[in-house]
């Protein structure tokens, strides 16, 4: 494949994500696979590149939740095809996260946007869904040895479970980092509940996760 053709496919993937065109994303991914393009490069430079622009648009209130969800839909239309062809390269793997909405809470919109952005950026996401029993987070972290556990709560009634859950996770693995998010969560909740960090939207969650992973890998935390 020529460099020009590769760049053309990357650009088409980016534009399909940015302009939320699942059919275009799928077609570009199919062509990339048929022509033997590097699936990892297509994912990272095409899909993740597009999602980076979407994140900026979300941050600056050009895009809102519906637009972002449709971008994620386009992203998955291509990612589902490209994934089996991605060869894990040394030094390119990002981190692993366990992600879920707290027990008693079914608000999973923010969680799903976070999942799309993290997956597009090369992270492995173990998504437990919504209304997740506390024990399940602990078990999944142990099973996957994930670097970060991300807990979402949109109600004060579900938020209180976080206080109970964090010591349960840390008891099994003191090094694991905990990010919490959702409407009732503030910096005060982070310190009172013993979490490591919070983020008010998906792009910021990714930035915070990158920082924590970097520090973890350098052995600082």
């Amino acid at each position: 494949m020529t460099n020009e053709r590769e760049q053309e496919l990357i650009k088409r993937l980016q534009e399909a994500v940015i302009n939320y065109k699942p059919a275009d994303a799928k077609k570009a991914a199919e062509e990339a696979i048929a022509e033997g393009a590097d699936a990892y490069k297509m994912t990272m430079e095409g899909l993740a590149g597009g999602m980076e622009v979407v994140s900026e648009k979300f941050d600056t209130h050009e895009y809102f939740v519906p637009e972002t969800l449709l971008c994620a839909k386009a992203l998955y239309a291509a990612l589902d095809l490209l994934k089996p062809f991605i060869k894990v390269q040394e030094g390119t793997v990002r981190g692993q996260v366990v992600l879920g909405v707290m027990q008693g809470d079914v608000h999973d919109l923010g969680k799903n946007i976070i999942k799309a952005i993290f997956e597009a950026s090369g992270w492995t996401v173990h998504d437990l869904g919504r209304d997740v029993p506390l024990k399940k987070f602990v078990e999944e972290q142990m099973k996957t040895d994930s670097d970060i556990v991300m807990l979402s709560a949109m109600m004060t009634t579900s938020m209180v479970g976080i206080k109970k859950l964090i010591p349960m996770i840390k008891e099994k693995n003191p090094k694991v980092k905990i990010m919490i998010g959702g409407a009732p969560i503030t910096d005060k909740t982070v310190s009172e509940y013993g979490a490591d960090v919070t983020a008010d939207n998906a792009p910021n969650a990714l930035k915070e996760a990158m920082k924590m992973l970097d520090a973890l890998r350098k052995g600082k935390m």
Partner: peptide, 11 residues
Amino acid sequence: GPENFFMDLME
């Protein structure tokens, strides 16, 4: 379901 609904607004 909120996620489906928000996409339906546009689709």
